[in-house]
Simulated scan of single mutants.
Amino acid sequence: MRDARAALTPRSAYARRVTSVPASRTARLTPTVLLCLALVYVLWGSTYFGIKVAIGSLPPMGMLSLRFLAAGALLYAFLRWRGAPRPTAREWRASALVGLLLLGGGTGLVTLAERDASSSVAAMVIAVSPLFASLFARLWGERTSGREWVGIGIGLVGIVLLNVGELRATPLAAGLLILAPLCWTFGSQWSRRLPLPAGLMGSAAEMLTGAVLLGGMSLVMGERWGTPTPASLWALAYLAVFGSLVAYSAYMYLVAHTRPALATSYAYVNPVVAVLLGVGLGGESLTGLGWLALAVILAGVVLVVWPRGGAVGPEA
């Protein structure tokens, strides 16, 4: 990820308010875009399992606060050492809004839901994110192509197949899992219109402000800290480095440089990774219908990701 730093920094869509589709979002599937997609697909798919392990002995909101504080502080210190300017007061306020929606409302609600729902089910429900992203994008005048809608529909069919007889969660957990992608996708789309710090400094500021907000939520909820298990501590370290420092920065690059359906296509691949981890590490089993569902999900991803004529731009 560090090798791609130079490609991630220039031409950020964060430092300016836009009123039309940015020119950078018409770029082709460059090696940097493909790398960011791979990182988000695999790493975020594994974080659902990591969250489940971490909250086994750590309070949900407090764990997330530590996760993003550690990742944000490391990234901020590295960028300042490389000469990046400090965010202005206006940029800190914008970062706090994005941190509240993405990290508090998105990741936070998923983490709370995983107290009463399995990690694979959480990842499956979050697969509606591309649909929400396309709907929110229309609020700012962007369009989703017919093929993207077909891909989204096929992906959702795969999610339905995957959930047949498998969706087991309390009503509260189910509600949180539906609200989480609404917060995440709205925050993602809005972030491209906010005056955020340029490049990866935007990710660092969002994680730092999000960590403060999550810490406040932990205090308000009266979370109690016990003695964490080694497994929870290792999971927390993995979430901070790979789930936040690497994957979150890659995702924000995709938000700024690709169309909404492509940036959120991770939501279809994450359930695949989550299920495979559950089968391989959690002792879960998958029926023939489940494997069929995974194939259908991947077919939907191909339709969403595959560009028309090699371009990765929104349809006019």
Rank of each mutant, 00 (worst) to 15 (best):
V125W: 04
I126W: 02
P130G: 04
P130H: 07
F132A: 08
F132K: 00
S134W: 02
F136P: 02
A137M: 08
L139F: 07
G141Q: 12
G141M: 10
S145A: 11
S145Q: 11
R147C: 03
I152V: 14
I154N: 13
L156M: 14
I159G: 05
I159H: 11
V160M: 10
L162V: 03
L162G: 12
L162F: 13
N163C: 14
N163K: 00
G165H: 11
E166A: 15
L167F: 14
L167W: 13
P171V: 12
A173S: 13
A173E: 14
L176A: 04
I178M: 11
I178N: 05
A180V: 06
P181W: 10
P181H: 06
C183P: 02
T185P: 03
F186I: 07
S188W: 00
W190P: 00
R192Y: 02
G199P: 12
L200I: 00
L200N: 12
M201H: 01
S203M: 05
M207K: 12
L208C: 05
L208G: 10
A211F: 09
L214R: 09
L214N: 06
G216D: 02
V220I: 15
E223V: 06
E223S: 04
W225G: 06
G226P: 01
S232H: 04
A237N: 04
A240K: 12
A240Q: 11
V241D: 10
F242S: 10
G243M: 11
A247C: 05
A256G: 15
P260N: 09
P260R: 11
P260M: 06
